[in-house]
Computed example of a mutant assay.
Amino acid sequence: MLKNLAQNVIFNLKNYDYKWKFKLYIAVPIMTFLILFDWIVKWIVVAKMNENESLIFINGFLNIQYKINLGSAFGNGDSAEELKKTITLASLFVFALIVVFIFLNDKKWIIACSLLLAGGFANLLARAWAPPTIRNGEEIYGGVVDMFVWGFNFLGSANYIFNLADLWVNIGVGVGILCLIMELVSMFTKKNKTEKIEEEEVKDEIKS
């Protein structure tokens, strides 16, 4: 029984539609561009600014403040104690997304996953080259470079500091929600069509 199960699993994996062409020609280039764009912006900020230095980028809309964040997205949990936890969770997040990405075969969901993966992967790898930050007189490595702060305050938005990779993740979540809404609408529409067809068939049988 176990042998048959294993054979069925192998057969299904071999014949599964992974949408490799779409992933290789569309999704991977998108991820590569987003990761490189994020890294270039981080590199420019590190090269041109000192930590905690700030400047106005787009007055009233977006400011730049160079900060090395030891915690999670948007400057949350910025402490040495949170660093290991953040890196562990980020690694698990990226690994899970890679597995999901491999098996996705719906193009819209592949795009959503690509955005999430680009953001998560960019921040995780950027921790390897980010310069150290000083906490309690000690140099600490492994932080991620953040630089953007909203120039307006909407629901506390002015208190958040983030980078482009964080933005990719949030856009990916937004696209994922949109995909979910599309799926629900499609299911609802198909259900209504099926019910109408069944009603028509019942009416035809009654007439006949």
Rank of each mutant, 00 (worst) to 15 (best):
L2Q: 09
G77M: 15
I40Y: 12
I30Q: 07
G142M: 05
F162L: 07
F61W: 15
V202E: 15
A6Y: 07
A90T: 08
T86P: 02
Y16S: 07
G151V: 06
N159S: 14
V173H: 03
N52T: 12
F152N: 08
L13H: 03
V173E: 07
V28Q: 14
F33H: 10
A118D: 07
G120P: 02
E53H: 02
N52E: 12
V173R: 01
G119D: 05
T189N: 13
F93G: 02
N15E: 13
V28E: 10
W129D: 09
Y18P: 05
I111D: 04
I26G: 05
F188D: 09
K191R: 12
G142F: 07
F162Q: 08
I98M: 11
T189S: 14
A96T: 11
N50P: 03
F101V: 01
L34K: 10
I177V: 15
F74A: 10
K108R: 12
E195I: 10
G174L: 06
S114E: 06
D78G: 02
L2W: 10
E205N: 11
L164S: 04
V169P: 01
I197M: 14
A47L: 14
L115N: 02
Y18E: 01
M182D: 04
V149F: 00
V99H: 08
I206D: 14
F188W: 10
V99S: 06
Q65L: 08
W39I: 00
K190G: 01
